[in-house]
């Protein structure tokens, strides 16, 4: 555990020093002595109490779920606190960076806290340790304690909102050539955000006065693919990754197997499952390739359905 004097504590120490000087300068007075002792006791008691609080605290587990860049997401900390503890501020220590989490006013018992991780840029960070700090009770000292807990903090690209709806329908990217399924129209339905413009049934829209889209039969014979071609500049890659992320995140509600392909990567994604951590990590770390790099591998795919 490490102890640090806070700003309030430093001011208090100066005051105590001034009082001590005044005490030594004047003749002995019982009450003066009593008050100086009280001030000193208050400081020492505060320190002891803060040390005791953190000694009673154990961080058992740290879970950092993958999350989008530039948006807050909850970090789950499982704590065992033997006695009620106040004013806990947690910090995630990563490689060369410290990420502060919001302070907790009070906590007791075995509990899991969901604390908002501040918005992070796209990437993967490895959390080395969790650090807790408290200034309670008097705010004169800040006591810190560190628990080495490794966790991977994956920050994938923020999903592009326009494509999320289309992807939720289980047909991949909204910009795909055949993203909504087969050419067979099963019926009409109200337009949803993310529907392709070419699926708008203009006549019905004109008749009803509200946007109407064509509902197509699911394409049972083909397995759609999300393809990310990394050749190009970073500025070109980022929107591509955002679109792909939206599609990947929507796979949980997909009804068909989907492929994800890029240079050096080919993953078959089962329908109805969450996006695999490996794929999110790839999205978090993907970098652009030079223009003369080979295109995404097509070999395992029966056919290409999507090109992001």
């Amino acid at each position: 555990m490490r102890v640090r004097l806070t700003e309030l504590g430093a001011k208090g120490l100066l005051l105590l020093a001034a009082l001590e000087v005044a005490f030594l300068a004047t003749s002995y007075s019982n009450l003066f002595f009593l008050l100086i002792v009280f001030c000193a006791v208050l400081g020492l008691l505060g320190l002891a109490s803060a040390l005791r609080s953190l000694r009673a605290l154990s961080v058992l587990a740290l879970e950092v779920p993958p999350g989008p860049a530039h948006a807050a997401r909850p970090v789950r900390l499982t704590l065992a606190v033997r006695r009620r503890t106040f004013d806990l501020a947690f910090v995630l220590e990563t490689d060369g960076e410290e990420i502060p989490l919001p302070a907790v006013a009070t906590v007791v018992g075995l509990t899991t806290l969901a604390l908002d991780l501040p918005p992070q840029p796209r990437g993967v960070r490895t959390t080395r340790a969790v650090r807790a700090a408290t200034r309670f009770p008097f705010g004169l000292f800040e006591v810190r304690r560190r628990w080495p807990l490794a966790a991977e903090c994956i920050t994938h690209p923020a999903p592009a909102p326009a494509t999320a709806g289309a992807a939720q329908r289980g047909c991949g990217d909204g910009s795909s050539s055949a993203g909504s399924g087969t050419a067979v129209v099963a019926g009409l339905r109200p337009f949803r955000a993310g529907d392709a413009v070419r699926d708008v049934h203009w006549k019905a829209t004109a008749r009803r006065g509200t946007p109407i889209a064509k509902e197509r039969e699911p394409d049972a014979g083909r397995e759609p693919a999300i393809v990310v071609d990394r050749r190009g500049t970073a500025a070109e890659l980022e929107p591509m990754l955002a679109t792909a992320t939206a599609a990947v995140l929507a796979l949980g509600t997909a009804t068909r197997t989907t492929w994800f392909r890029s240079q050096g990567l080919a993953l078959r994604l089962a329908p109805g499952t969450a996006a695999p951590r490996e794929l999110l990590r790839w999205l978090a770390t993907a970098t652009p390739l030079p223009a003369d790099a080979p295109p995404p591998d097509r070999a395992p795919l029966p056919q290409e359905a999507t090109r992001a």
Partner: peptide, 29 residues
């Protein structure tokens, strides 16, 4: 003084502090 210092620590971080935490701090004080 002790109660005020303790509540000050809770509110100083600027995060939301509910009444239960303040009551707990006063009890602790």
């Amino acid at each position: 003084l002790v109660a005020a210092l303790q509540v000050n620590v809770l509110v100083r971080r600027g995060d939301a502090v509910d009444g239960a935490a303040v009551r707990g701090a006063v009890h602790h004080a």
